[in-house]
Computed example of a mutant assay.
Amino acid sequence: MKCALVTGASRGIGRAIAQQLSQDLNLHILINYASNKAAAEETLSLIQQAGGTGELMHFDVKDGAAVKAAVENWYTNNPEGIIHVLVNNAGITKDNLFPWVTEEDWDAVLNTSLKGMYNCTQAIIQRMLRQRSGRIINIASLSGLKGVPGQTNYSAAKGGMIAATKALSQEIAKRNITVNAIAPGFIESDMTSELDMNELKRMVPANRFGKVEEVAYLASFLASDKAAYITGEVININGGIYA
């Protein structure tokens, strides 16, 4: 059973990626969620309605022990299972100008995106190395490349994720494992629902926000055999706002 583990898959970009990987690559989807079980169940229902398969995997990416325990438990119960694709998507924002960013908000944002990527990748990397195949896709952000005022913590987290992508890709490429990052700009999702879309889209050459499905199409390509020679890349998907 070939599987994809998608963190933060209960909604938004994570949900769209989970659905697309199921549809395009016929992967069994491990739908990670931290707290919103109902939304995760909705993701699973959408996958099943489209003829795919999946299951919920509950853990908080910030908690390394919980991640390891959940993954090890899954492998114990699925000895023939292979996690071929890992999508490190889980992330949060706690926006504020730097002088007012609390240590708690700094840690929460970095521990979710950056430490979460470490925890989840560590949990599956040894088996990927042994099976000599795999795809790791890190969902970064425009913020990690350009830097966005009011998002110093988020920019730091996503910038670290991008640098780690480039380094790790070189370590494990010989085992046929690719590591790439996707850097979305303004995407219509829960995370951007409070932004002034009409005002911000004027900054975007494409004159619109992107759709979660458009990010999912790219993730699906990177997870496929068609992208086997692409690794260490950071691919922008931002309507031309930054290149």
Rank of each mutant, 00 (worst) to 15 (best):
K146E: 14
T7P: 06
K166N: 10
E72C: 02
T53M: 04
L114P: 01
A16G: 02
A34Y: 02
N119E: 03
H28P: 00
R132W: 00
L218K: 04
Q19F: 04
K2C: 02
S155K: 01
N236G: 11
Q131A: 05
V87H: 01
E72V: 08
D196R: 13
P79G: 09
I92Y: 03
E194F: 08
Y33K: 09
S45G: 10
M1E: 03
S143P: 06
I125Q: 02
F209S: 07
G116E: 03
L97N: 13
L27G: 01
L44T: 05
I124V: 15
I187C: 06
N89S: 09
E42S: 14
V101C: 05
D105K: 06
I172G: 06
L25R: 05
M117L: 15
G159F: 07
V234I: 15
E104Y: 12
T112L: 00
V87N: 05
I47H: 05
N36R: 15
A243N: 05
N32K: 09
K37H: 11
I29N: 03
L195P: 02
I31G: 00
M117D: 00
L218I: 03
T192F: 08
V179L: 09
G239P: 06
E103T: 11
V109C: 00
A39M: 09
S193C: 13
Q19V: 14
A183I: 09
N138H: 04
G150R: 11
S143C: 14
A90K: 01
K158I: 02
P184V: 07
L46I: 12
G185F: 04
L222E: 09
G159M: 10
G147R: 10
N111C: 01
M203Y: 15
D196S: 09
D24H: 14
T76Y: 11
Q170K: 15
I230F: 13
I237A: 05
G12Q: 08
C120Y: 00
G64A: 14
G185Y: 03
K158R: 13
A16W: 03
A227F: 07
T165V: 12
E103F: 09
G81H: 04
E55D: 11
